[in-house]
Design a protein around this nucleic acid. Structure first.
Lengths: 121, 121
DNA sequence: TTAAAAGCTGACGTCAGCGTGAGTTGCAAG
DNA sequence: CTTGCAACTCACGCTGACGTCAGCTTTTAA
């Protein structure tokens, strides 16, 4: 596949794909003319990268995590970092749930002034 | 309270508090010499601001949302935006849960090669 | 009273994840 | 062959939430 097709299927920009390669997150071989050639798994790989970004991981961490997801295992040193990231993600989830509840209260109160407001303050 | 005390209690930098004031997220009256004076509620307000930032809201949205949380209600126009933000937060939570499960699988496999790997690929 | 600590106001620096030209080349269709 | 889109490589720009340094003033502890 060529870069434009991967970009469209994965829902990201061409620029983003070049950036991922620069960050060593996504490999591509080259045609004789220097054009990038992606294999079929590239699309799901890009989706995974996006997911990890969405989880707040910076690219240097993504770069370390990706091979582990591929291999299904991690070096002991990395394992600690993975667990730390897991904790951070868990904290993010907890925060997001709290904020969501708070937003829900505001929305509910706006619609019905007698609604329960257990999460406010 | 003075700015240093608020910063310490809320666990943010002094610079951040000045930035919040600049963004009109946090008010402070001034002493005769020009030093900021915060009321007691400032600390929890800062925590709320941090929470909203953590939810991915940019400061212009936080600026709109804060009075609604205070009042427990929102203007109709804003209500739509709040609901949109709620949806976005919900999506983030779903993504984070997926990534967490994936990380869990890698961690589990690393510790025990026979573990279940239902979330990988 | 005086020195240290804490605050003040600019204003520039940073970092990540791309966006956005500019100028050049590859490649498939007519 | 040539046309025209798609890709290529620099390389600078942008945005947001602060960090940080400079130079000066206020407050507080000794």
């Amino acid at each position: 596949m060529r870069i434009g097709e991967v970009a469209e299927k994965a829902g990201v920009s061409v620029r983003a794909l070049r950036y991922y390669e620069e960050q060593e997150l996504l490999q591509a071989c080259r045609s004789s003319g220097g054009h990038r050639q992606y294999c079929e798994t590239a699309v799901s790989r890009v989706r995974l990268i996006q997911q990890l970004y969405a989880a707040g991981l910076p690219s240097r961490v993504v770069r370390q995590v990706l091979p582990c997801v591929d291999a299904g295992e991690a070096h002991p040193a990395l394992l600690g970092q993975l667990e730390a990231e897991r904790v951070r993600i868990d904290e993010r989830i907890t925060e997001l749930l709290a904020v969501r509840d708070r937003l829900d209260d505001v929305i509910a109160l706006t619609r019905d002034p007698n609604a329960d407001c257990s999460h406010l303050e």
